[in-house]
Simulated assay, not measured.
Amino acid sequence: MDVQVVGVDGSPESVARLAAALRSALDGAGPAVLPVRARPGDEPPLPEPVARAAGAGALPDGLAVVVATSGSTGQPKHVALTGDALRASAAATRDRIGGPGTWLLALPAEHVAGVQVVLRALLAGTECVVQDVRDGFRPDGLVRATGRMPHGARRYTSLVPTQLARVLDHGSAPLHALAGYDAVLIGGGALDPGLRTRAEDAGVRVVATYGMSETCGGCVYDGVPLDGVRATIEPGSGRVVLGGPVVAAGYLGAPAATAEAFTADGFRTSDLGELGPDGSLTVLGRADDVVNTGGEKVAPAAVERALLSVPGVRGACVVGIPDDEWGQVVAALVVTGTDAPADPVLRSAVRDACGRAAVPRLLHRADAVPEHGIGKPDRVAVAALLAGLR
């Protein structure tokens, strides 16, 4: 068994090449696939941990896809996804959203969410229409790509919140096109309830997904685990643990990291969460994002939700920044529109929703929240920016 690096650059041609490689990997006729952002023919060599695992004969049985994580908390890890896990994920998604259909790829195909769009179409025997995103996502491009989809078939796509917001802000033809999809999966980051309401009011059939590379992408839809997926809360730490057939086989070339993250119960995420009486999952934010201010622990995600509930707030990112007296203080970067609410209104909303300790001591307005990966807030960049303003 071997691993092949396949370059994808956002073009339909490169995605077609990736799809062929994925089909061969799933059939067992070809090597496992590691998609990377590169022009076809200009691929880099195998990453050292992957090459080491392959050379030592330590690749998992049935390995089909290797996905590099974003590396937001350190060096990227290389997630080993088996054909069985990918098939289970695709089948559970198909059953949850209403059956097989045609998929539109508008995400970078080297990320797990993009790979999954290609695979869902491949495994369903339907077409994967590709929006050319070499120059970034454009709402007008969504219209043109949608126009190439066959009539009569169910239509699906997967976007990140930033893409959804751009379509809503643009309105007109792109919004009309998106409202014609039978399901629009939104993942890659927390979906602002206000953004969801705007989309649903415009007729977009939104499905909020939660998952990561280690679970073949989204495996919890609108708070409800897909069939076969288990969501539990680890006693003591409060971390979300995801189990079931969609869980990866570990990290290639990283046995210690694999042993820490993958247990008999499933994958130990870095997220804090809670389960409702009906078993639905609410994600509270990353464990390592928690702000400890004067001995009080504040979850940034909860503060962000409070800020985003205020009319006129279009985006928010909350972090902790060092403070000599309090250890850390809560700081917020806020994106507002023309009807920008005053700072006391924002602070009052946070106080009412989260308590006095969560009220941001520093509020800063910006045109956009810095991002990395596919629509994820870059908290390191935001913390550096806000710390520099003190």
Rank of each mutant, 00 (worst) to 15 (best):
2 D>Q: 11
139 P>T: 06
115 V>H: 13
311 P>H: 09
38 A>H: 10
223 G>S: 15
198 R>M: 12
193 P>Q: 06
351 R>C: 12
260 E>Q: 07
378 D>A: 10
20 A>G: 12
267 F>W: 15
129 V>K: 01
221 Y>I: 14
78 H>D: 04
31 P>W: 09
270 S>P: 00
299 A>H: 13
345 V>I: 12
334 V>W: 01
357 A>K: 07
108 P>E: 01
141 G>M: 10
2 D>W: 01
81 L>Q: 07
275 L>G: 14
67 V>A: 14
233 I>R: 12
239 R>D: 09
123 L>R: 14
113 A>E: 00
123 L>V: 02
74 G>M: 03
184 V>L: 12
258 T>V: 03
325 E>R: 00
330 V>C: 01
186 I>C: 06
123 L>N: 15
277 P>Q: 13
191 L>H: 13
14 S>P: 08
25 A>V: 12
346 L>M: 01
84 D>N: 14
350 V>P: 03
337 G>F: 08
106 A>W: 02
65 V>I: 04
136 G>I: 10
3 V>P: 05
217 G>I: 09
294 G>I: 04
234 E>L: 11
29 A>H: 09
383 A>L: 07
269 T>L: 01
123 L>Q: 09
346 L>S: 02
227 D>L: 07
38 A>T: 13
254 A>C: 00
218 G>W: 06
90 A>K: 10
32 A>Y: 06
232 T>F: 04
59 L>D: 08
191 L>G: 12
136 G>D: 02
269 T>Y: 09
97 I>V: 14
373 G>Q: 06
315 G>P: 13
143 V>C: 10
146 T>E: 05
271 D>L: 10
174 P>T: 11
296 E>P: 02
239 R>G: 13
353 A>G: 13
92 A>I: 01
31 P>H: 04
169 D>K: 12
60 P>F: 08
253 G>I: 00
152 G>Y: 09
100 P>L: 06
45 P>E: 07
